[in-house]
Each structure stands twice: as structure tokens, then as C-alpha cells.
Design a protein around this nucleic acid. Structure first.
Lengths: 337, 337
DNA sequence: TTGTACGCGTTATCAT
DNA sequence: ATGATAACGCGTACAA
């Protein structure tokens, strides 16, 4: 069996309260006593019982990563792997743990919300890639559950951590323009996600800044999947004249786009320039290696965890908003016109 | 604030025990009473407090997914995304939840082991892709923590769920032989993981069954990464004569291999046939679409969760071992010699 | 079938 | 600075 506070107290010849103080670093304990208690603790390998602690403190030291049903098909995108990595790192640094909440169906969403949140498994929640109009946001807000969104959200009450998507897209398209391209297409993300909408906005801003008219024909909405990227690229290639460069709003879609170009018997970057978004690990291994906008995905997750834990512990009354900066990574899918 | 058993009891005009019985589906409750209690519960949206319950029952209804430091660099492989998906589905079906334990360093491994397991956050653990000699196994065993390994493990006490890697590799290599190839190379996984060792074994068995001598030169050890696949393939291509077909032990490595072939100015499958392993979602979108061995990864995870929960609840005394079957998926990277 | 009472391991309040 | 004691919310013998 395993030890309790009581056991440690007996072994160290003090009371349970004192041991508790030692474990929780309370100031009022005589150094000599503190030391002896620690010694016993290490000797027997005592670890406080999480559930008992939770019951007493009303905190679990666990947060959840919520991935809504709407984006669960995107889950195999390396973006999420990196995000998860970052979040766990952030958690561990703050003595927190991460629980997963992947929704597959609306019914599951309802069920899990009750099971995880209302039964107080979690102290708070990281919301990944939610749609702008996701009802989950309102619910968390009204239930007073601390949460932070990955990606901008318009409601003034929600805290979020984001990468500047408008700036990232601008950087990408600016570069294409610098290379002499003027007929530049884009494959967007879902426009009801802030990342999708913002990258499109950046695309437009870059064009306008250079007095290039925005041609709606050159804008095709994608879905952040490889298959979607392939189909969207095929559409762009069927245009006449076709674009000489395309800004693709995610690396995963860019992989599909690359294949569409090849299927059409064209070459990248000689016939058409391509630039992706994310810089997932695969990007450097594509053929040719993909130029892209690097997002600090892992740091994004880490930051989200930290912000959330702060929200939980210091109970901020006003929303926290943080935006990180992306950077352009030039490889071999872009060429002078 | 939120309701407790006591509140529900008062509102329904019964005692706390009765409400507890209703919630836990104990038989001895008069139907009329049961119904009235449920009504109150639904009306006020009562949810039992997880921590309180854990303290009383000594069970948390949470399991952990442990990804050892050794394989944490592989974490972005879609294999893990699919596995996680499967595990969560399996958990939800059994009223369980999933917590992540991703180790980055040995120190973290030690720390997390204490924080997660010894403080009883978890009822049990799924061990992913552990090396055959991982000390974690011995520790879990001696601490009596229920766990199931993803992938075969030699110790008779450990439960595992696996896909038949020997059979899968045999299927793949058999097919290459059927196409007329005899000079067949392989890029293996890490040979200290069962998946790596077993797929190599299957490769050898297939050759031997057809009386083709095993040539050690044609066997190069990979690491399940894309970069590793690229480098290993380059080595195989430098052989003289070079192999006419290669069995690559993971799709991710196959992506790298594909690129190595292209860099060498060769074509797949005209100059060299390739066959991968896993059938990750990307495989169908590669250029050309990858022939591969499909693993039911998601079902693997789901099954692991079920086995683990059974282990936890029924406390099996003997280890559970389950092996699922892979299947060959022929696309366009294999051709007759 | 239902209710009473105790225990689960901790934290926190209040004396001392 | 330390110790007794009352919560925290639930499950469960045991009694009725």
C-alpha cells in the first residue's frame, strides 16, 4: 500500500498539519522540522493523493484540450501534433497535466462537456481551431470555465493566443510580388475559422498595397486537407490565363496542390510558384522543398498553456490576448517570374 | 454553485444514499423513487464530483497514454494521431478519459511517473511504441499498475495489442516477388522496437519461402522518420547492382525514400518499386500514390483502450494478448519487373 | 427498500 | 511554530 500524510506525520514525529505545510511550502515551519519531514517523504517515496487534494482545494491541476467535432477530420495534420507537444510542455512546466477531449459527433460533444467539465475533471480548457461561431465559446463563458482559444476570437471576453495570420499571409504574398508575380491565386482555409479568414485578408492586403486588383476568380476556398488542396489547385490551373503563383493557406493543402500541378504536367517552380503555411516538419522533405510561412506552433501551444494556467490561478478578470509572429521560410517552390 | 448528492436528496425527498444508488444503477431502489430522483437530477443538471468519487472508490476513470522519450521525435507521424483518436474513442465508449504523458527527457520521465502515477491520477496506462528493453515496463510491472502495450512485448506478464507485423511484411514482400522482383531491399524501423524487428523478420521469411537468399547489404536500418528514409534509400540506390524493389517499413520513411529516388533521377515504379507500411492518410496523396500495408491503427488504439479498461475493472490475473491483421493496399508504386 | 454513519486523504481554520 | 478538527462530496457497510 501507499503512504498518507498521517503516515509521514507519525514517522517524522509531527502532526499531519505540519507535513501538509511542508509539502505545500508554507512558510511557518521550523527549518529543522521541515528538513526532517522532507527526509521521511523522500525515504518512503510519499506522493500526495491527487483526488484527496482536489476535493479539498477544488482544483485538479488538469486542463483539457478541446478539439471540436468540426475540425476533428484535420486531426492528423502535424499542426495538432506540434500543438499538443507544446501544450504538454507548457503544462509540465507549471505542474499541470493535459487531458484530451476530441469530439467526433455533436452528441459526443454534449456528453463530454458534461462528463469532463461539469464533473470537474478539469480546471480549464484550451480550445483548438474553433469556428468563429462555435456555440462552445458561449457555453464556456456562461459556465465561467477558464479557457483560452488557439486563434483569435472576436468576443471581448475571450482570451486567446494566436499567430499573426494577416501578417504571415502578407509576407508570403509580398514575396511573390517581389519575384515579379502579379497573377497570384490563393487557396484559403475554411473562412469560418479565424486562421482561414485572416490569411485571406493578408493576401488581399498585400495585393492592394501593390495596387494589384483582387480577382475573385483567383480565390478558392479550401478546407485545410490534402485532398481539398489538390482539388482547389486543379480549379486554379484550369483558369485561363492561369495564375503564375499561388499562396496556399496550409502546408498540408500545399502537398495536395503540388500533386495537382504535377498531374497537370507542370513544374514547380518553373511553371508556377507555390508557397505554403505552417512549416510542418514534412515541408522540408517535399519535392521540391516547400517555401512556407513558419508558425511557432509548439510555442503557440506552450504559451496557451501558460496563459490558461495564469487565468486559473490568478483568476484574471480581463481577457488575455497574445499574438506571436510568423516568419518566411524560403525553400525551392518559389521562383522569379 | 453546483449541486451535491445531498441537494438532490433533499429535493427528491430521499436520503443521500438512495440518490447515490440511483446514480450508480444499484438494483435495490423502488422504480417510482428511482424515476423521481432521475427527474430531479436532470432538472438541475447534477453531475457527480469526480474527485470526491475517486477518493471514495479509489478509481479515477482516467487512463494515460505514455509516449516514451525515445520515440517522442516520431510524435508528428500521423500514426500517433490515428492511435490517439482510436484510444479516445475506446475510452469514451467505456466512460473513461485520456490523459497524455509525453516524455521529452529522462528526467521528465522520472518526474512525470511520480506526478501522474504515484499520485493516482491514472487507473492505468497505454504504452506506445516502447523499445523492447524499456525500463518503464519493469517499473509498471513491479508497481502493479495496469497497462497495455501497443506492440508485442516478450515478457509473459505484459498485455499487449499488436498488428501482425511479420505477416504484414510478408504480404508486402510476397507481392514484390510475385511481380518478378528478386533483388529486394528493405528499410527497417529501429530494430529495438518490436515493429521494426518483426517487419524485418517478415521480409526475411518471404524471401526464404521463395528460396531467395537474404543479402545483408540490402537491409538498412531506418528510424521511422522521413529524413531517415531519404538517407537509407540513398544508400540502397548506391548499391551495384541496385535493388529493383524496396520494402519500406513505414509510410513516413517511404515519403523520404520516394524523394531519394527522384533525386537520383529515377522513376517509381518504372525503375524501382516501393511499398510502404501503415497506410496513413497521406499515402493515397503521394506522387505516385503509395502501395502499402494498411494497419488498422485507429482500431488498434480503440482495442488497447478496451483491453486496458477490462484489465482495470475485472483485474485479470493473466496477460491479455491481441493481434489484429493488416492488409495489402495496392496503389501505384509497384510494378512488374 | 431505505437511511445512518463512517471513511477516503487532503487543506484550512482556529486554538495554543 | 505546531496541533486538533472540521470540511470537501461521495460510496458503502450496517442497521432498520
Amino acid at each position: 500500500m501507499s503512504y498518507t500524510l498521517e503516515d509521514i506525520a507519525r514517522l517524522a514525529g509531527v502532526s499531519r498539519s505540519t507535513v501538509s505545510r511542508v509539502v505545500n511550502n508554507h512558510p511557518n515551519v521550523r527549518p529543522a522540522v521541515r528538513e526532517r519531514v522532507w527526509e521521511v517523504i523522500h525515504q518512503v517515496g510519499y506522493q500526495p493523493h491527487a483526488a484527496a487534494r482536489s476535493l479539498a482545494t477544488n482544483r485538479t491541476n488538469v486542463i483539457g484540450l478541446v478539439i471540436p467535432e468540426a475540425v476533428s477530420t484535420l486531426f492528423t495534420d502535424p499542426f495538432f501534433s506540434l500543438l499538443i507537444r507544446g501544450i504538454t510542455d507548457g503544462c509540465y512546466a507549471r505542474n499541470y497535466h493535459l487531458m484530451l477531449a476530441l469530439f467526433s459527433t455533436p452528441a459526443q460533444e454534449e456528453d463530454l462537456y458534461n462528463r469532463l467539465l461539469r464533473s470537474r475533471y478539469l480546471d480549464g480548457v484550451v480550445l483548438a481551431s474553433t469556428r468563429l461561431d462555435d456555440p462552445l465559446v458561449g457555453r464556456l463563458l456562461s459556465d465561467g470555465i477558464p479557457f483560452v482559444s488557439i486563434g483569435r476570437h472576436p468576443d471581448p471576453r475571450v482570451s486567446y493566443v494566436d499567430v499573426d495570420n494577416v501578417a504571415g499571409a502578407r509576407m508570403a504574398v509580398d514575396h511573390l510580388i517581389r519575384l515579379g508575380h502579379t497573377r497570384i491565386g490563393t487557396i484559403t482555409g475554411p473562412l469560418n475559422m479565424s486562421a482561414g479568414a485572416d490569411r485571406l485578408e493578408g493576401y488581399k492586403q498585400a495585393l492592394q498595397a501593390h495596387h494589384i486588383p483582387v480577382d475573385e476568380q483567383l480565390i478558392v476556398e479550401g478546407d485545410f486537407t490534402e485532398g481539398g488542396g489538390l482539388a482547389s489547385m486543379a480549379r486554379l490551373l484550369s483558369l485561363d490565363p492561369r495564375p503564375t503563383a499561388v499562396f496556399v493557406a496550409s502546408d498540408t493543402m500545399a502537398m495536395g496542390a503540388l500533386r495537382a500541378v504535377r498531374q497537370a504536367g507542370l513544374r514547380v517552380p518553373q511553371d508556377i510558384s507555390l508557397i505554403g503555411y505552417d512549416d510542418v516538419p514534412q515541408a522540408a522533405f517535399l519535392d521540391p522543398p516547400l517555401s512556407t510561412v513558419r508558425q511557432p506552433i509548439q510555442r503557440l501551444g506552450e504559451t496557451a498553456a501558460h496563459v490558461l494556467v495564469d487565468l486559473i490561478t490568478h483568476g484574471q478578470d480581463h481577457a488575455q490576448r497574445l499574438v506571436l509572429m510568423p516568419e518566411l521560410v524560403l525553400r525551392q517552390t518559389t521562383a522569379r517570374l
